[in-house]
Write a protein that binds this DNA or RNA. Structure first.
Lengths: 321, 321
DNA sequence: GATCCATGTGTAATCGATTAACTACGCCCT
DNA sequence: AGGGCGTAGTTAATCGATTACACATGGATC
């Protein structure tokens, strides 16, 4: 920057003013400075700028698993929304591990992100408290924690789950296997509670860990126990369950019915296409980014609760009803 | 930091030494400092540190599309490898747009990443030159550019493509549709060249843009033109092609054979399972990160060329051979 | 012509760390 | 006792920007 100033025959203050579009500099000074910048190929050092202004124009996003298309879509939406407001997004991968999540959150705070978007791996509120104590704007996404004091953005699947339960019971299923998320995540618990309540006792629940492998294992156990329908609470576990069903040569929906929480672009391609509860991922990501930006600007955004929708495609024997 | 120093009755220099594990401080001084840090909940400001040391311990990764599981896997692998060496990764989404790619690259350079991993959207070398001119370590991933002067990490699909071509021709296909990537990407061109050469004239090529929608359109066109086999050069376009095939009620492989470049976890679940050319994505990501770290440490890593493998599953009528 | 204001630019402090150069304090040896 | 030396710790410069404040210039006003 000093070089630019010298080249243009002005002080660094003036260069800075030109850079930041301040009113002061004369059009001709501005021209000279811009020419010098161009000539020297100067690019301002964002670190120094941030150090001085205490603003990085950066949002942190900590998710549980980038390989889960659900989170990838959310990440993408967050990024789009953030960019359109001049912010960058740094993504951290917690790998469904609370420890790694904490490490990432701290790293992001050390780098002074202007705000943090978090999909908590567990419902333990201590990390959230730590962030809040540091005074960093925070929004929870998809999942919440016990006694959360910050805005939360999530999808409500209660209606869809209830409708699904009604349909399964109506179709005569009396042994319905539920492959749930970990009981220490809010989504894992809530979805399961709603569904089992709606199923009224014919449900058998096995908890997985939101990963493919646990989906296969849970499916194997439930099928062994005589389940005639499977409801899977996450798309990766759904993939695992599907694999197990195929491996056993079972026909959907004749031998076993299947429904999955989270839609995927390839679900319609299966035979039969998979019935799902689709979450508005893009809208969730965008809403979360918007809430966080509002928080950063000193506003107090409300919680956002979007609605997940039941999409019937055939894998629950819809045609037979 | 000043507060910590005061609290512990030492100077900031000493605090800094404790933080960075320098030899100097006495065990008891160290204790006092650590206690003060703990008590005040002090966390060092990474911006200030980086400004002084000109090292951010951060790698930039610019990819074309986070929603493409191929890139998501690569991103994940890069991140793992980087983290195990104490580096963070900032991911930028270029959305297959050269313009956005450039914007992201510049943003990352402004933030002084220690090195850059780039999957170039086009084979235009100007952006690469710009980065190199800035003296920032750079490694290309998956795709290369014309006259690249930096290390490149990619997968070689020539053998697999040739084997696939032999098999298709051997099965009697005389009208083989190729859904290729954009001709201005190295992977788009190279894969297509190898395949058409091996097919020896029975190929009809349509270029897509590595997105699902373009896959459907290309498939529609090729099927209309009487293709009895489709080779798709990317998994997202493969998804589109599959959709089109299903929409027309065609049976794989009886009515049309299909093979896709890039494996996906759900390909084996289709009926019949899809034959693919699988790229070693994880190894690519790790190798790229390793090369970049080597470059940062002043070494001169070689190009890495991994091998993509043909995985026969049935969608090309393998059983009938 | 002196006074005052507006306007454009420069000077220097500052953000929060790192680190070279220096000081102070013992300890040992002759 | 005094000189030399190693060690623990301090002082202050520095990284590259922003910005409050000071200053200079020129035109308007009386």
């Amino acid at each position: 920057m000093k070089d630019v100033a010298q080249h243009a025959g002005v002080s660094t203050a003036t260069v800075s003013r030109v850079l930041n579009g301040h009113a002061a500099p004369t059009p001709e000074t501005r021209e000279r400075v811009l020419a010098a910048i161009e000539e020297l190929g100067y690019r301002p050092n964002a670190l120094a700028r941030s150090l001085r202004t205490t603003s990085t124009q950066t949002l942190g996003l900590v998710i549980s698993d980038l390989l889960n298309p659900f989170f990838a879509e959310i990440a993408r939406a967050v990024e789009d929304e953030a960019r359109s407001h001049g912010y960058c997004v740094v993504i951290g991968n917690a790998d469904e591990s609370a420890e790694q999540e904490a490490t990432y959150v701290r790293t992001l705070l050390d780098r002074r992100v202007d705000g943090l978007l978090l999909c908590p791996a567990t419902d333990d509120p201590s990390l959230v408290r730590e962030v809040s104590a540091g005074g960093v704007p925070l929004v929870l996404l998809d999942r919440t924690v016990r006694g959360a004091t910050c805005p939360v953005v999530r999808a409500d699947g209660s209606e869809a789950l209830t409708a699904l339960a009604r349909r399964l019971v109506g179709a005569g299923h009396t042994r319905i296997g539920v492959i749930a998320g970990p009981p220490n995540t809010s989504t894992g618990r809530e979805r399961t509670d709603v569904l089992t309540a709606a199923l009224g006792g014919v449900a058998q629940v096995v908890h997985g860990d939101f990963r493919q492998e646990s989906g296969s294992q849970a499916a194997a156990k439930l099928i062994d126990d005589g389940a005639t329908a499977l409801v899977v609470m996450d798309n990766l576990m759904g993939l695992g369950a599907l694999g197990e069903i195929r491996a056993r040569g079972l026909q959907i929906p004749h031998d076993i019915a299947l429904a999955v929480f989270d839609d995927q672009p390839w679900f319609p391609l299966l035979d039969p296409p998979i019935t799902v509860i689709a979450q508005p991922t893009v809208e969730m990501g965008r809403a979360a980014a918007r809430s966080l930006l509002a928080l950063i600007n000193g506003q107090q955004p409300d919680d956002v609760r979007l609605t997940a929708k039941l999409v019937l495609r055939g894998s629950c024997g819809e045609a037979e009803l």
